[in-house]
Amino acid sequence: MAHILLVDDDQDIIEMNRTVLAQRGHRVTVSFSAAEARRAVAAEVPDLAVLDVMMEDKTAGFELARELHASYPKMPLVMLTGISKEMDLQFGFTPDETWLPVSTFLNKPVNPRILADEVDRLLKEVQ
């Protein structure tokens, strides 16, 4: 069992991922914005964080990922996004792990089970 932070501005994405992660026995904290997530992390550091890219603005998730990685380099980060097309259009390139310090990019829409599998795999890796 681990403590997972879910950050997404879409309440349904939060809800489905929380349901499935809770079924696997994880304790889940949710935040609807990067600002909320910062407060949540200040209160209790999670074992792993799942982040959406676009929240308050187009890149709120990127900034949050970089901050979390700087403060907690060992914390696995999963980024949910429509990386390919959306990112190409908006940033002129596709960000990868070298550009952004995340463990895994998952393309939206994400099957909650596949996210939960990835979370479990990453948690096993850092153990």
């Binding site: 349904d12 994405i13 489905m16 499935v20 939206k108 099957n111 089970r113």
Partner: peptide
């Protein structure tokens, strides 16, 4: 895309009897 992603995620849960 946001509502489509939400609905698709929920449908995946239904298909897998989550």
């Amino acid at each position: 895309k946001a509502p489509i992603s939400a609905i698709e995620g929920y449908l995946q849960m239904m298909r897998e009897r989550a």
